[in-house]
Design a protein around this nucleic acid. Sequence first.
DNA 1: CCTTGTGCTGCAAAAAATGCATCGGTTTTG
DNA 2: CAAAACCGATGCATTTTTTGCAGCACAAGG
Lengths: 305, 305
Amino acid sequence: MKHLQTFHYVEGVARAGSIRKAADDMNITASALNRRIQRFEEEFGYEIFERLPRGVRLNPAGELLMQHFRVQASDLRRVQGQVADLSGERRGHVSVACSQALIPYFLPAQIAAYRQNHPGVSFSVRVRDREAAERELAEFSSDLALVFEPVHLVDFEVLMAVPQIINILIRRDHPLAAKPVVRLRDCLDHPHVLPTSQYGVRALLDTAAALGSRPLNPIAESDSFEFMRHYVRHENAVAFQIPIGLHCGPDSDCVMRPISTRDMPPGNLLLGQMRGRTLPVASARFAQGLAQAMEPFREANSPGG
Amino acid sequence: MKHLQTFHYVEGVARAGSIRKAADDMNITASALNRRIQRFEEEFGYEIFERLPRGVRLNPAGELLMQHFRVQASDLRRVQGQVADLSGERRGHVSVACSQALIPYFLPAQIAAYRQNHPGVSFSVRVRDREAAERELAEFSSDLALVFEPVHLVDFEVLMAVPQIINILIRRDHPLAAKPVVRLRDCLDHPHVLPTSQYGVRALLDTAAALGSRPLNPIAESDSFEFMRHYVRHENAVAFQIPIGLHCGPDSDCVMRPISTRDMPPGNLLLGQMRGRTLPVASARFAQGLAQAMEPFREANSPGG
DNA sequence: CCTTGTGCTGCAAAAAATGCATCGGTTTTG
DNA sequence: CAAAACCGATGCATTTTTTGCAGCACAAGG
């Protein structure tokens, strides 16, 4: 959209931290870009960048303005969606920031199901840790966030919450597979792999371990749940996962077992949006569908096994 | 602001109902304006005007877009206000749509008081009947509305409400001046002047008269409270007014007397804004002050006498 | 049937944005 | 301590975009 060009340029400069770099990124001359900024500052009435010896940086006024631009751009997309809707097209675009756990099974299935009814709607799926997912919402780069145990919850409007008991993922021949429910201390006695600290599962494990005064002693740590999932097959270790993230069929070589709630409280898987924002039609509908689909996972133990 | 130029043009065309007329109004050629519209429609992806044989008219998509533009423009002003605020200027502009009753005493005093502390803030005061005031809010042409007995209340977010007992305004030598509280039927026995039907006072009188099965029989009807106020001096008639609208000092030749609440329920004087909107700093502050100043008028009878 | 008013379009002129080279400044580097 | 590397700003020629003018086709009203 043409009249948002200024926004695009300002954003580029803010991101690059220098007009020249930004100009390079956006295939424009530094002088042209520089003048665009100057022109805009003039008509806006205030400088929005502070000029540093090594470049530029948004000043508070600029931050305010950027937020305004983001809202504006997002709202324009919403209007376009509504217009498409009333011309019977049901088009649109939905962008979701989500935790890794949702990537393999849950989200693909949900999106496919939604697209079956609305082929005109396209999706962006971004894997983000809890922190980044919330930031995406605030910056209007994502419409929805689906995260396990979000950190701040400022500007995060909860659309749906389902408690999730943390499960361990082990091989069928692992000694712990015999019990239907396992204790945390038993898990820690066996070799275990842990997610890195930016993940909600790790945060819960950290506090639980501290309370039980049993130190975590991971043989491996990773920011990839997929890695951990595959690793347990090799060394017969214990991995941790929330039930919604994994389906262990009866013919799978792995099983899941819930950790006793006496050791660890369930964490919350939250579906949320930017507080106060009016979502585009497509996103709102999709969120509704997601919420419905999340319901069965409420307090769910390891499904199958 | 440059990037809102399209908005300005679209609005002009929508208002004029024809591209050529709008072009004339806005000092631009019809061809240039026409092409702006076309270009915009192209990049927006949908037509926003329906072409009629005698001109153009916004289609539903266009209506949606206009609303978006209005929000956007209003939000930009808010941001500019905030920026001015953080550079310590405390500038801004407040626009108020209000009923006639507030014009002579209440609003001038309030605005003067506010401007004493914030000389950088300017004001627009528009006299509007209840209907128009609410429309102004919805179209973002006014930040605040101060109306007696609003009609629809959709999109009207109430910031403050004070009940107002309708008073009669009469000369000191009028027979009804003897009683501290008057009955409606007694008023109707005397010659009386009434506001026209778009006003809240009239609406309340209409229903009360209907309930008491006593017909209204105005010797004069006017849309100007000022006219009615002066008329009572000439023919010794009865006029109706809400207490906040008038100060009758002890040396005045007129007095006010409340109508018994057995005959008429108090109406509400409401201060409101567009639902869900974030007001500019200045407007929000001023609204706060207004609300405080309204408090003493709660259920107030004729002040002074 | 002609007049009036509409939106639309080809073409030349005017206006705006861009690219290039360069200046004056600060920081980094050798 | 000087040279190199960046930085934002600016003057000027060029390119791109926008505008104005004139005229077209079409529909309504007299």
